[in-house]
Design a protein around this nucleic acid. Structure first.
Lengths: 395, 395
DNA sequence: GTGTCGGCCGTCTGCCGACAA
DNA sequence: TTGTCGGCAGACGGCCGACAC
């Protein structure tokens, strides 16, 4: 897997000379984001890709957009050349993936490894993430470091000095160096970053509510990333191509690649996209074909908290049906309607099978609401796309 | 023609509530840019659109990109809903156009008006444009206003005061208000903008080499625009959609619209695009079918100077052939190879017929290298796209 | 334990005419 | 005519502990 800081030649690998740190990328992307491995088999969902574009351009897909009848709702692909990037202007992390749809013959021959469920996101251990306060971002002062955080990830201070001071050097996603004066002072004593901090805040255009995260990695390097708060008005529509043409472009790219078994390239923005739309094939097969779900079944699902940790929410399956019966019939994308135990009203009403953990207490076979498989392995693409309704007998 | 400042809902007309000033847009776009009128007939060149995308994404079209055999190299369209916009972040001007390809029947019935050659760009008269110096953009001082410029476009000062001072209020492309202290002082006396200027420079992120322009319009309003210097490293590739998919998207959009006679939307960035790719139909027909050009013929062509005025360059036609014989055979786009009298080596080696003024001294009929017309008016789209070589007998 | 503030000093912003190109 | 500079005064940046939650 290649890592690079997005520059001018972001799309040409030979131009990406400076590599960015994988730990930092994952820390900025969040604990739930994992990228499939280079060379592995994945399932690509044009529908999910389309949703990301809709969010990025702030424009829903136009009702007039033509369908691509030849394009199934999911493509089994081999994944080439996953590269991690960060936007030069905003430091927003994203991944570039090159996908190659498998021919029907290749799909039969694919070596299915049940264990290959995608490496879990390797979140670094020695790191902290703090949401910036008004004081942190004001020009009046520096950055107040939470005590536990400083003790965990910063090199220890020499407490023989009065006051204890040191210079910290941290590198961001673009491998730029930032120097901070780290001092332990005040009454009561506290850790502060003073000189150098305001330069960082203004250069990255941070405001109160944004987060910074520091990582102390195995090579004794200090890494520094940012996560901007969800400012709803941040999305800037591109003036390069109309959103309708972008939607069409992704469909045409995928359809062309599927028809010719050639490669196509996509971008995945983990913090913008509502859901991951490139899923490890093994994970997909396991949940779609080897897990039985039914209406009324209880499940749990992982979410990221505001403090960048993980918490589980519980819910109940209330229905199983096509999310978009017109455009994408017989797709497993967001096919599960759910209700949430803690109904803040903000959690999504639909999920995909591979996002949830069903809480099943009854034995695997038989089951009261089984999702039976006619074939243990689908012979080709089209049976893949047409299987759901056949197997579940519902709509 | 609607005018709006690009915001979140740039692509949805109902969200564009604040209208931007047409004079200011044209002043920022430059003296050579003209937009076809709402409702008029135009010729759209996917190839030119593709070039703009290549420039915007800093990525040439991939050799693997499939052709759209059904998409001719030019589409005759009716133009709906031209709107002028300015990028919220950079103030870069661009236009959004909704195009509807004509059916073959409509092409026969089109009411061809030879006079409808597109309104010439209405450059305002009371305006000035100054390239910023190091002193202008330094935090050390204000903005030095050229004397003639101040006298032409600023309201007259009250010279009874010592020193003469007034407050100027100017509005930018987003209709934001900027206040400046305009003072006439120093030894020798000169016009200066002091208070308020540095705020403007930092907000717009202007650097030495960028230009500002002030307009005093008929309604006694002061307007304020910017033109950034051509910084070659400015182009930021989008992380929304791969450039290959963007190229495919524009082709698919145009092809779908042509097949169904439905509307599609494009963006035109006058200062990024190498050439205009939406040409008034009358202008196209006049130059392609009613103008005879031949190798060796002399011509002149308009260019914009660094001072935002117009100058003419002379050249000689050295050849007539397809610019891209594989992808876009039989297209008039950049079909004329030229040599320039003042060969700085920087002027483009190819132009389109409608960009040049042939200097013809011989009578219209006959001519030594005539471009004969088999038909005075093409009956349909396909004869349009296939006509060039037939008529000229060359390749 | 940490967010915000008043106090205080030093740097930089920003207005002025001098001067030269 | 106008770009850059030295001079100067005031604003703001930025470091400190006090204090409260």
């Amino acid at each position: 897997m290649k890592l690079s800081s997005a520059g001018l030649n972001q799309q040409s690998p030979e131009g990406a000379k400076n590599f960015l740190n994988s730990e930092l990328w994952h820390a900025c992307a969040g604990p739930l984001v994992s990228l499939p491995a280079d060379g592995s088999h994945v399932v690509y969902f044009p529908q999910g890709h389309s949703e990301q574009i809709a969010v990025s351009t702030n424009k829903e897909v136009d009702a007039q957009t033509p369908n691509y009848p030849s394009l199934p709702p999911q493509l089994i692909c081999q994944l080439h050349n996953v590269t991690m990037h960060a936007d030069m202007e905003t430091d927003e992390v994203y991944a570039q993936m090159t996908l190659q749809p498998l021919s029907p013959q290749e799909q039969k021959d694919v070596n299915f490894l049940p264990a290959d469920l995608g490496a879990p996101s390797k979140q670094p251990t020695n790191y902290f993430c703090k949401t910036l306060t008004a004081s942190d971002t004001s020009t009046h002062g520096g950055f107040s470091v939470p005590r536990r955080a400083a003790e965990k990830v910063f090199p220890p201070l020499d407490f023989a000095q009065q006051p204890p001071v040191q210079e910290l050097i941290a590198r961001d996603l673009h491998n730029n160096e930032w120097k901070f004066r780290h001092i332990f002072r005040g009454q009561p004593k506290r850790h502060l970053l003073t000189s150098g901090w305001s330069m960082f805040v203004s250069a990255k255009r941070l405001v109160a509510g944004d987060s910074v995260l520091f990582i102390w990695n195995d090579k004794n390097q200090l890494l520094l990333g940012i996560r901007r708060a969800n400012r709803p008005q941040t999305v800037m529509p591109s003036s390069v191509l109309s959103s309708d043409s972008m939607h069409l472009g992704l469909l045409a790219s995928a359809a062309h690649a599927a028809a010719t078994n050639s490669r196509f390239t996509i971008f995945f923005n983990p913090r913008a996209s509502p859901s991951e739309f490139v899923i490890p094939l093994a994970k997909y097969v396991k949940t779609v074909y080897h897990t039985r779900v039914s209406v009324g079944m209880r499940f749990r699902m992982l979410f990221e908290t505001e403090e960048s940790s993980i918490r589980r929410y519980m819910g109940t399956i209330t229905g199983i049906s096509d999310f978009d019966p017109v455009r994408w019939p017989n797709s497993h994308w967001l096919s599960v309607k759910v209700g949430w135990d803690e109904s803040t009203g903000e959690r999504q009403p639909r999920v995909s099978l591979w996002e949830i953990e069903p809480l099943t207490t009854f034995p695997m076979y038989p089951s009261p609401f089984p999702m039976r498989l006619k074939r243990p392995w689908p012979p080709g693409l089209h049976s893949f796309s047409g299987m759901k309704n056949d197997d579940m007998g519902i709509n």
